[in-house]
Design a binder for these strands. Structure first.
Lengths: 141, 141
DNA sequence: CTCCTTTTTGATAACGAATATCAATATAGT
DNA sequence: ACTATATTGATATTCGTTATCAAAAAGGAG
């Protein structure tokens, strides 16, 4: 059974890239996080384990993770975040505009109507991004 | 009947701000555009009519247009664009990942299910952003 | 292991979009 | 016309991200 490290290794091999300790560490740290992770958070945790790792390597590796299909990049609120993405069903996001809390949800019918809209305009759907902005229960008080 | 200039004037007056020639010009240019406009495009057209206008004023004014509800800011592909937004129904976007062509569409049922999802998680929906990425008819050839 | 080639690394410079600063200018109200 | 306040344009600054580059590391071949 393939795990994320195997997928990453395969991707790297495919492009004659190397599975280095730095790349392994960054992937490890990334996988320990959940939800949407800002690169600064990853940076802090990576440096806890290896203070010599440079910020450039982190950016380069995150890019590789995106290209290999393990992570997805988002730019919701001017801050780039990365999200784990492996065998995960399509899902959308609900974001609180007050506290930035993020909830993931999915709605099969929405998917269906997205396809419908694409067909109407002769587009081949490749991916989608739906984000709902609102105020969560706690912040409404 | 209120037009955009009146709305802008009202907004400015409300905050003790002034309806200056620069602001009027930028709004004029913005309104002549259609769809999603990059700030550089607006800059070029504004400078055609008044080469003395500074970039800072342009950014400041675009921010005011957003705050006054006349424009909406998007950050689709790392490039910030502004979209005219006046008495416009909710709509979503369909973007070609090859040529960047953008199509607007709306789908009432999608809206309905968005609300549904919000209720499920005790969120009060404030706005949404749905973007479908695909390949348009021309680019499929 | 040793040699050689290619990739990777970390430090740092560079970039670019957006914002802050500030003195000079324009505006609105008296 | 006068005064107080807002606005402007030029420019410096910020900050996230990317490019550069010499040194280090990794993978093969012998």
């Amino acid at each position: 059974m393939l795990d994320e490290h195997d997928i990453f290794k395969d991707y790297l091999k495919q492009y004659n890239l190397r599975y280095t300790p730095q790349r392994k560490l960054i992937l490890d740290v990334f996988l320990q996080q959940s939800g949407h992770v800002h690169i600064d958070d990853i940076h802090i945790r990576v440096r806890d384990q290896d203070p010599t790792i440079g910020i450039a390597t982190l950016y380069r590796t995150m890019k590789l993770l995106v290209e290999s299909g393990l992570a997805e990049m988002h730019t919701f609120n001017e801050k780039t975040t990365y999200e784990r993405l492996f065998q995960v069903r399509h899902h959308d996001h609900l974001i609180c505009i007050v506290c930035d809390k993020t909830v993931e949800f999915e709605h099969p019918l929405i998917e269906k109507y997205q396809l419908e809209a694409c067909e109407r305009y002769d587009f081949t759907l490749k991916s989608h991004r739906m984000t709902l902005f609102g105020i969560c229960k706690e912040c409404q008080k």
